[in-house]
Simulated assay, not measured.
Amino acid sequence: MTQTISRIARLHLPLALYLLFTLIPFYWMLVFALRPPGNTSLVPWPITFEHFDTVWNGVGFGLFFQNSLIIGIGTLVTVTIFALMGGYALARFRFKGQRVFLLALLCTQFIPGAMMLIPLFVIFKNTGLLNSLTGLVIADTAFQLPLALILMSGFVRNVPVELEEAAMVDGCTRLRAFFAVTLPQLRPALVAVGSFAFIGAWNNFLF
């Protein structure tokens, strides 16, 4: 019994101290957010939401949040659709230069986004997309799509092609076999690719 308590103390006490150290900044942030102006106590009492109202309505944070949400969801939908189509083509068909194309997709991840600011600015200015949410969705899609294509093609390869062939033997077209057999197996892939695209667009404050 004593050895068990000693082992638990050696394991859990350092973890508890580390957890306390980690949560202190969050608690401090919560105190500043909820305590009234001029209150310097360490406990947020009485609780007020005045600061949230000031930030949301006073400085326009609500509009900023709405724009970020539109850009993130737009990028998520666009990247997921194109990655699904392109990833399926890369996984199921063979064409000349396929490996070179995949290598080029991979190499795009080494290009810093800051290098593309001036070219994108010129392109969007000439096409009338400057200072628009649509332009940001297109830009974020262009940067998120290569990795999404690579990930989606890997997920599609993990779905046995024999399942589609069996469906086509039963009379399905390739498109019908894709929607009936392959697409349900790709739900985790859609969640993963969509999450990466949304987070990438949400954090892309530079653009």
Rank of each mutant, 00 (worst) to 15 (best):
I24T: 12
A16H: 04
F21R: 02
L76K: 03
P188R: 12
P14I: 02
F121R: 09
P14Q: 04
V122N: 08
P25W: 06
F179M: 06
G135E: 00
T54N: 14
F32W: 12
H51R: 15
F207L: 08
F64R: 09
A192H: 07
H51F: 12
W202F: 11
N126W: 12
Q109I: 11
I123A: 11
Q109V: 11
P188T: 10
M85Y: 00
I150F: 15
E164Y: 09
K96E: 03
A177F: 01
P46C: 14
M115T: 08
A167G: 05
V77N: 02
M29W: 09
F21I: 13
R187N: 07
H51E: 06
Y27K: 08
L17Y: 04
P44Q: 07
F110R: 09
L129N: 00
R35V: 05
A9Y: 03
I47D: 08
G62T: 15
L106Q: 10
P44D: 07
F196Q: 05
E50P: 07
S41E: 11
I47E: 08
P160A: 15
M116G: 08
M29G: 07
L163D: 00
Q98T: 04
A83R: 04
C107R: 05
T40N: 15
V181R: 03
F205L: 13
K96T: 04
A189S: 04
L149S: 01
F49K: 03
F205V: 11
D170T: 06
P36C: 08
Q109G: 15
H51K: 14
L30H: 04
P44M: 08
K96P: 00
K125V: 08
A114C: 06
D53H: 15
V79Y: 02
T2A: 13
W56I: 15
L11R: 10
L129F: 08
L145A: 07
T108Q: 15
L206F: 12
I199Y: 05
F82G: 05
L76D: 00
G38I: 05
V191Q: 08
G135S: 03
T54V: 08
T75R: 06
G200K: 02
I24H: 09
I138E: 00
F178C: 00
A197I: 02
G194H: 09
R176I: 03
L19R: 03
K96M: 04
I71C: 01
A16R: 02
L84T: 11
I150L: 15
G113K: 11
G135A: 04
S132W: 05
Y18Q: 06
F198P: 00
A91I: 00
L130V: 06
F64Q: 13
F124N: 01
L145R: 03
V161S: 13
P119L: 03
L15H: 01
L69Y: 12
P146G: 11
V193W: 06
A139Y: 00
T182K: 02
R94M: 01
C107E: 06
C172A: 12
E164T: 09
F198W: 03
L186F: 04
L30Q: 10
D53E: 14
N203S: 13
F49V: 12
L175T: 07
I5Q: 06
N131S: 10
L19N: 09
V161T: 12
A16E: 04
V55Y: 14
Q144I: 00
G97M: 02
R35Q: 14
S6M: 12
V59T: 14
A177Q: 02
P184L: 05
P160V: 14
